[in-house]
Each structure stands twice: as C-alpha cells, then as structure tokens.
Computed example of a mutant assay.
Amino acid sequence: MKFNPDIYIDTMGYAFTLPLFKYIGKCDVGCYVHYPTISTDMLSKVSDRRATYNNASFIARSKVLSYLKLLYYKLFAYVYGLAGSCADVVMVNSSWTLEHIRTLWGKDVSTVFPPCDTRAFLNIKRKDVELKLIISIGQFRPEKDHALQIRSFAKFLQKISNDKRRCYKLVLIGSCRNEDDSKRVGSLKVLAAQLNINEHVEFALNVTFKELKNHLSMATIGLHTMWNEHFGIGVVECMAAGVITLAHNSGGPKIDIVTEWRGAPTGFLADSEDSYATLMYDIFSMGNNEKTEMRNRARESVEARFSEKAFETRFIKCMSAVIEESKD
C-alpha cells in the first residue's frame, strides 16, 4: 500500500494475485501464463473417470469420489476464471495454453512463444559416430511418460537384426528433483531389464550443459512422449541442435513446434508404441541428404519463431497498450 507499482505482470502462474493488484493496488495488470492451473483436459479426465497422474485410480474407480472431485474442479475453474478475468493483458506460451485460458478466463489472449536460447544449440556441430543414438530430454516426472519411450524403443529393436542392434542406444537425459524421481528412474531401469534392452538404455542424470550439447551433437533422434505438453522447450532444443524430432502427436509439439516449414515437415509425430517404433525405423532408414534437409528446415524454423529476439518483439508489442496507458 505504501509503494504501489503502475504495472503488475505475473509470469509465475499466480492468477489469484491478479485481483489483489487490480482492485486493491489499482494497477494495470498483465500476465504471461505457461500452464493453466486447471484445464478443461483435467475436467474431462475426472468426468470420464480415467486414472492418470492427476487423477488417482482409487478416485477413478469410485462414482462418489469422482463426482465430488469433478464438483471441486468445476468450482475451482470458475474461481480461477474470475481471477484471470482481472488481467488487462493476457499472454500465453502456446496455442494449446491459449485455448484453455481463453475458455476459462473469457478474455482476449495473445500467444508469445517462450524465449529459447536457440543460439547455443544452433552452433552445435554435428559429429559422425558409429553409434546410432536416440535421446530424450526432460525431468523424470510421471507425465513425461519415459516408460512409453522404453517400450517403444524395445519394439523398434525387434525390427533390427541381432548383429546390428549393438549400434543403437536410447539415452534418457534429465534431472532428478527428489526421492520420488529417483525411485521413478529405478523403476524405469527395471522395465528396461524386463524387456531385455538394459544394455541399450542409458540414464544421464543431472548432466552439465556441456555434456548435454555433446549428447545432442551425436544423436540422430530426439524423443518426446508427453501427452498434451503445453509447449515443449526440449523439443525446440533438439530441433535447434539438428536432431530429428519424434514428438507426441498432441499439445504444443503438434500445434506449434513440429509443423511444416516452407511447405515441408520439420520432424515426426506419434502417439503409441507401434507408431513410435515404426517412425524410429523410418528415420534411421532415411538417406543422408533427406536427413540434412529436414535438420536445416527445423533449425531455420526454430530460429525464426522461438528465439529470444522473437520473444522480446512479441512481448513488447502485447504490453505496449498498457505501458502507454500507464504513462498517461
């Protein structure tokens, strides 16, 4: 109350701070939403009684608990919408997030793709190695669905003759935030052993940026399996590094990232063990010229759309009206 800002911008997803600054602080309010606190997908999963990472199986099995949770979600979504409606400027990081926020908040929304340090990845020089690498970049959270990657890779290896399998490896690169993540890595190692592919699967935990770039320089395929990821910076990083992307056919990767550029594809999309395995095989079967052309298109597309410069230009344009109003 002693020092009110002229403009308040939330970039952390704290929607319930917006009415505080709007009506108590009398500020112009803007926000940049990375992920909705609640989404229409979450409502549909509870309504359909589907067990998933945000809907425990014991709730999904119970009509009463599912009804009560759905009621709570709907109430929360309503209040969340009221808080969001206080914003004068609403920016989101992807088309997927845009549709959810527009539905929940009832506001005009602008898409401002997040700033990716594309230069660091565009400068990576490709290395010719005998080993044929598939890499995955992402924290070991349940929604990343690393198990799907391992099962898909196992099916892919079944398509490869025994004498050539030794050349292929899946490297899962990511950070472990806590004990739960460490246990999750342990269960993934058990899965790889059960599928008899543990010698083909490597876990690169908490790697340095230098190590990450080294993996990217040698990889042929960048693998992503999260359903309905809101954006997917890891996908952008792979494309910028010249790694052919194989991402989930949903959310940000489908709508915004792995799209056509200059009338040709920049990567591939899949949604099941079979489709992932088939596309892995197809990618490794591509000719060198075809791979190079796709890599170049992907690199050009991410530099044009997801660089820090592109973010700055779009962000300033969206905020200009509020800034001018604040000056007056």
Rank of each mutant, 00 (worst) to 15 (best):
M218S: 11
M226Q: 04
S57E: 12
E199K: 12
K69Y: 14
D282Q: 10
K254P: 02
T220P: 02
F16Y: 15
F268D: 01
T313Q: 14
C167Q: 08
A77P: 01
R166S: 14
S161Q: 12
V109R: 00
S47E: 12
L104N: 08
S85G: 10
G106V: 08
D163Y: 11
F156Y: 15
N162K: 11
K132T: 05
N4P: 12
I135N: 01
A15E: 11
E199Q: 15
E308K: 09
F156T: 06
Q158W: 02
K183C: 10
F315I: 07
A241Q: 11
Y14L: 15
I244V: 13
K2E: 08
S47P: 04
L157K: 01
G222N: 02
N55H: 14
R141P: 04
K189Y: 13
A310F: 02
L195W: 03
K63D: 14
P115T: 10
T37G: 12
D28G: 13
V112P: 00
L122G: 04
E324N: 15
D48R: 13
P36Q: 10
A241K: 01
E260H: 15
L148H: 04
V89P: 03
M12Y: 12
A120C: 06
K309Q: 15
R61C: 10
C27T: 11
N206R: 13
P36V: 03
K317T: 13
R184C: 08
S326E: 05
D271G: 14
M218G: 03
L223D: 04
T11N: 13
N54I: 08
I9A: 08
Y276D: 01
D282T: 07
T259G: 09
K291E: 10
K327Q: 05
L148C: 04
K317L: 10
D328E: 12
L269P: 00
V201G: 00
N55D: 13
E290F: 03
I137S: 03
Y23M: 05
C27I: 12
V79P: 04
T52Y: 13
C167P: 03
A83I: 09
L20R: 10
L70N: 07
L104M: 09
G263Y: 13
Y73L: 14
K69H: 09
E179V: 08
E179Q: 14
G13I: 09
S175F: 07
H100V: 09
C318I: 03
T103G: 07
S272H: 07
L43A: 04
Y72C: 07
E199Y: 13
F306L: 06
I197W: 01
T103N: 09
G186Y: 09
Y67P: 03
D88G: 04
L43S: 08
S301T: 06
T225A: 14
A154C: 06
A192T: 01
E202R: 12
I135W: 01
N93F: 00
V33D: 03
V89R: 13
R141L: 14
F209H: 10
T278C: 07
L131H: 10
T208E: 07
L65I: 09
H34Q: 15
R61E: 14
N198S: 13
V90R: 02
A87Q: 04
